[in-house]
Design a protein around this nucleic acid. Sequence first.
DNA 1: CACCAGGCAAGTA
DNA 2: TACTTGCATGGT
Length: 217
Amino acid sequence: MQSSTGQRLKEMFDLLLNHFGPQYWWPGETVLEIMTGAILTQNTNWKNVEKAIGNLKKENLLSVEALRAISRTSLAEKIRPAGYFNVKAGRLKNLIDFIVKRYKGDLKGLLNEETVGLREGLLTVKGVGPETADSIVLYAAQRPVFVIDTYTHRILNQHGLADDQATYYDLQELFMDNLPEDVMLFNEFHALIVKTGKEYCRRKPLCESCPLAGWER
DNA sequence: CACCAGGCAAGTA
DNA sequence: TACTTGCATGGT
């Protein structure tokens, strides 16, 4: 027997999945590309991130060694389309330093670390907050943590499952305490929430035709 | 023209 | 602890 909250979340998931189909996130080919994208997409449209990642790929910069070698200012120029490029160049370098120091530059070390330790470690990096850390843990390391973003906040309290002042961890617990620990479920659910936000939360008329319309309680 | 995007850290009181 | 502000390009 599952909690009623769990039932509601499951229903929400099914509605979104039926409407949009599976999203197959993360849109990136390698672990490092996913990690890079997680930094670059902070408060930024994914389209802009793609351009920045395209620049990095074009110049073969998507490796730990290359990102370690390039200067922060040069890196900033490459990732300019992603916005906040000076800040993000520093954050990306911080993440690379972390990989070098903690795993001797070998991402296999990172991927083998236990979930909690990995998450805590990522959170010590300046520029990596809860959402970025969890995105890396879920989408790069394939561990069952639920990623929360602004759309999750917006949609959940719009539908009466959370109040305005719920914290990141309040919402994360809501999902993780009431759903099975399933990597693919968490993967698709978060991706579908973001998809819903992008497609239906921008303007009123759209919102009314959202697959979740009429779910307020 | 205004507004916002798959956040985060630093500053203020 | 609880707000506020800076960071910045590119699309609607």
